[in-house]
Structures are given as structure tokens and as C-alpha cells.
Amino acid sequence: MPKKLFFVKKCLFSSVIDSIDMAHTYTLMADSGSTKTNWVLFSGDQRPVERLSTSGINPFYQNQEAIVSILEGLDLQGKVPREVFFYGAGCVGEAQLKSVEGALGHFFPAAKIEVASDLLAAARSLCGHQSGIAAILGTGSNSCYYNGQVIVENVSPLGFILGDEGSGAVLGRKLVGDVLKKQLPEAVCMAFYEQYQMDGLAIIENVYRQPFPNRFLAQFTPFLLKHIEEPSVRQLVKRSFVAFYERNIRHYPKALQLPIHFTGSVAWHFRSVLALAAEETGFQMGKVVPDPMDGLMRYHSDQH
């Protein structure tokens, strides 16, 4: 976006800030994965005023200009936040944090802006101010040991090629691999081709030549959920969850004594299989929530 247009936007937001009723203070919160960003604007009493969604924002895959283009679609109905907390996948290095902070700063120049990882969002939402183990299972996967204030230990997820066990991208990768190599029952393979109308060449093109292959692969998780009662499909999903526990959770202090809390769409929709995998590996599953937003609102309201 041209710098001149940024300046105009900043002036417009500044004039709104100057005239806003001091009695109405809002906080804008974002929980962003690689596929989707959930936004909520809430007041001091934790009451959501606006809930919106945009495309996913991940500074590892998108530059600041691309992030700005996504933020242009964020319509807050004229309400201006005084605080913006952005938690996102890929928000882990200085360059990535500055990229997101810069994009947000152009739209909210007078707001206090904090950018942090989606993993810290999960820890704050699931554990609050208590120590514990928090995990994300969505398009990607991640986990950490949290001491009630900061993340103390984190087993690197390594992405969907080298790691990301239990994630939507890995579940989708395993599914299409088994379909293309005819490792699943014929009826399941036929149902896949019928539902998606996609042959092997199209799948390979999307995985190896198109952007965001993780999103592409994660889109197949509803098929797994639809056919979860098929033993071979259920086993595929459970094996991936077992690998998540063994290759990630087992490395944390007191992992066998502490409950493992989860957030993310995959954790939520497959929670019964996730519980079976926990039982098989000797871990205790704690709370499971579809997204961390409500817990984050509680956490930040407690900070005031």
C-alpha cells in the first residue's frame, strides 16, 4: 500500500481517537492461525461488541504488505480500540513480530499494540496464571510448558513436513497419501474422490507447486471426521495423536502428572479420539476448547 494512503488512514484514525467518548474503551483481540484469524472487540466488562473473521495471518508466509491487505477488510463499525492484542502463528522472531506490529500500527496508530505467538495465547487462555501444559491442534500443532507467566519450554513443532504431529495439515497429508497409495479401503478412497473431484496430479500440484500447502492439506480433515467410525480412518487419526503426545508432550516436566489442555479446531472436533490417544500413552487430558478467545478475554480483563 502507498505510504501516502497509510498517512491518510493514520490521520483518520487519530481524529477518531481524539473525539472518542472516554467512557467507551475497547480492546481488540486477534487469534490467528494460518487459515483464519478470529477477531473480537470487547469492552472492560468482557462483553464482546464485535466478532469478526479474516483470512489467516502468518508473517512467516506473508510480508507486511500482504498483512495490510487483510487488515483492510476488518470493519469495526467505527469503534476504535485503545489496546490491540494480536496472537498468531508465526509470530515468534523479531522480524515477524515487527512486521505484524507495523501493519497494525498503520491502522491503529494511537493504540497500545502487543504481538505474541499463538502458543502464548493458548497458554494464557487455558492456564491463566497457573502453571501447566498447553497445546494447539489446528492447521498446525504446537505445545509448551507454561509457568503461569511465561513459556518455559517448547518442543519445536517443525512444520507439517518435519513435525506438526496431530495437526490438520498432517492429518490431511496422511489421508491423501493413503488414498493415492490405496492404503485405505476402496469404499473410503472412492468416497474421497467423489467428494473432492480431484485426482492425484491435482493434489501433487497443490502440495508441491502452490502456496500454503498446509492449508490445502488441512481442508481434508472434515472428511476424516465424517468417516471417523471407519476403523482404518480412526486408526490414522489416533496414530497421529499418539505421535503428538510421544514426540512433544512427553518431553515436558511433570507431563505425566499434569493435565494436558488443548485448543484448536482439530482438538475440539476429534476430542474423543484425542482422549483415547492420551489414555494409550499414559497422559491425562484436561480441558479442550475450540479457540482461546474467551479465556484470553478473562486473562486480559484480570490484568486491569
Rank of each mutant, 00 (worst) to 15 (best):
I203P: 01
G138R: 02
L126P: 14
N206G: 03
K3P: 00
G264R: 07
A66K: 05
F7S: 12
N147H: 06
M293H: 08
L296G: 05
Q64V: 15
K79T: 01
A202I: 05
G90L: 05
I57Q: 04
R209H: 13
I228F: 06
Q130V: 00
S99A: 10
T221K: 04
V155E: 06
F85P: 03
P185C: 07
A218S: 15
K254R: 14
V100W: 06
E280C: 01
R247M: 12
L120H: 03
E246I: 11
G177F: 15
L137T: 06
S301L: 12
H251Q: 11
K226M: 09
V100H: 03
A111H: 04
E230A: 13
V170N: 00
E153K: 13
P48T: 06
C11H: 10
A278K: 04
I70A: 00
F283D: 02
F212L: 11
Y196I: 10
C127E: 09
Q64F: 01
F216K: 00
H261W: 10
K79M: 14
V84R: 01
Y193V: 00
P211L: 12
R239F: 03
S240N: 11
Q284I: 15
L104N: 07
G128E: 03
V80H: 03
V237K: 02
T263I: 02
Q64Y: 00
I260E: 04
L41Y: 08
A187S: 09
A122Q: 07
D21T: 06
A191G: 07
L119H: 01
F220Y: 12
G73H: 13
F86M: 04
A116P: 00
C91A: 04
I228W: 02
S34N: 02
K174A: 12
G102Y: 11
A123I: 14
R173M: 03
D199T: 03
F13R: 13
D18Y: 13
P2C: 06
A30N: 01
V115Q: 10
S167V: 03
A89H: 01
Y61L: 14
Y193I: 00
E205Y: 12
Y146S: 02
H269T: 02
D178Q: 15
V188Y: 03
H300T: 00
P222D: 12
S34M: 14
L12D: 11
K3N: 11
G166R: 07
L184H: 04
V176N: 05
G56N: 09
G44D: 05
P253Y: 06
C189E: 12
V266R: 04
A103V: 06
N147M: 08
Q149T: 10
L5C: 02
L52C: 01
A123F: 08
S143F: 11
N248K: 07
P213V: 01
